[in-house]
Simulated scan of single mutants.
Amino acid sequence: MFASFLYFDLSFMVWYLLGPLQVPIAEALGLDTQQRAFMVAVPILCGAVLRLFLGMLADRIGAKRVGVLAQLAVIASLLGAWQLGIHSLGQVVLLGGLLGIAGASFAIALPLASRWYPPEHQGTAMGIAGAGNSGTVLAALFAPMLAAAFGYRSVFGLACIPMVLALLVFIFAAREAPVPVARKQWADYGRVLVGNRDSWRFMLFYAITFGGFSGFASALPGYFHDRFDFDARSAGWATAACVLAGSMMRPLGGMIADRIGGTRSLLGVYLLVALLVLVAGAGVGGAQVSLLLFVLTLLCLGAGNGAVFQLVPQRFGSEIGVMTGLIGMAGGIGGFLLAAGLGVLKQQTGSYTPGMWLFALCAFGGWGLLAWVKREWRSQWVAGAGAARV
């Protein structure tokens, strides 16, 4: 569990690195708001797609081996950016694509930890391992500060230090669970998608919760800079407060879902998120009010991430590996659409409000869909006292 958490945590730190560095990079390369948003959204999208490939590879040669190879590739990418520099939008997008490998760690760390625990503790186990998304806090806190002191290019080189240490811990501490692992094929993904409405529903639910978390985590440094004229360091610290709330709440969200049921938790999450983002988009209050609203928003989204993965093993126990990859991919796609969409709408309208309200509408839609299907789930998945956990 510790090895999975640390691996996931520092991989997420690197995956998110372009977010808190977006202001100095955009200033150096002369990027507009839309280009800046695309730059920070690319790692999210690439990480989402690569999760499927790394997940399939992990089934064949082992999650630990794939984790080591992926970490080496990420370290090499960081070293290249540090030594060679980035001089254009195309180069920073290429770097973002390579950093997407770090985002694909989701498909390695979570199954590696999950397979050690029985179904009744999946919410807690997946929540603890998944709390590795707190690595975004490290990036938001330290990347702008280091960039101000040494230049943003040096941040890529400095990031290699904790990555190498985490790799060593992973090599010596990670262990594969003594359970049989079925090798996934592309046909397996097709099987759970064709004619299975629940697979699409879960992908949508996670696209809202994790997509909201990762999308806002990447977009908020630019948002605080543009709207309240925060410098890169202040914007990073404000974003770190928001991301920390969401990261800490993920394991608690899993525990709460274990106690009161995943659907009940998610219903509350979607409703609260929709209301909070509506108010934030309306521009009520100043910087402090906006910061509080986004802290609460990401706190709720973190709880939602834990709740989704409390439900996944109950619905897809024999296909958890396939669904973890698909759901993780959907979450990344959701984050890409939110981060890029906020930038596009800001560029076209001059305001972040339309993008915020569109996301709030999606959260309301998730609430409505979940309220509609919850009775069907409770009657079909479990019987008797076990239904309370759904």
Rank of each mutant, 00 (worst) to 15 (best):
M1C: 10
A3D: 07
A3P: 08
Y7E: 05
Y7A: 00
F8P: 04
S11I: 09
F12I: 04
L17T: 02
L17G: 02
I25V: 15
G30K: 11
L31Q: 07
Q35S: 15
R36E: 14
M39Y: 01
L52P: 01
L54C: 14
G55P: 04
I61E: 14
R65I: 04
G67T: 03
L69H: 12
A70G: 05
Q71S: 12
W82H: 15
G85V: 11
G90E: 10
V93F: 09
L98N: 09
L99T: 01
G100V: 04
G100E: 04
F106D: 01
F106Q: 06
Y117I: 09
P119R: 14
A125T: 14
P144H: 03
A159P: 05
C160F: 12
P162H: 06
L165A: 15
L168G: 12
F172Y: 14
D188G: 03
R191G: 00
V194F: 13
S199P: 02
F202M: 15
M203V: 06
M203G: 15
F205P: 01
G211W: 09
G215F: 07
A219H: 00
L220I: 12
H225I: 13
R227E: 08
L244G: 05
G246A: 13
G246S: 11
G253F: 02
G253C: 10
D258G: 04
T263I: 11
R264G: 13
S265R: 05
V269T: 11
L271S: 13
L275V: 15
L276I: 11
V279D: 02
A282F: 13
L291G: 01
T297K: 02
G302D: 03
A307Y: 04
V308S: 04
R315C: 05
F316C: 06
F316W: 05
G321V: 06
M329Y: 07
G331Y: 00
G334A: 08
M356E: 01
A360G: 13
G368W: 15
G368M: 14
L370R: 00
R375I: 11
S379W: 12
A385C: 03
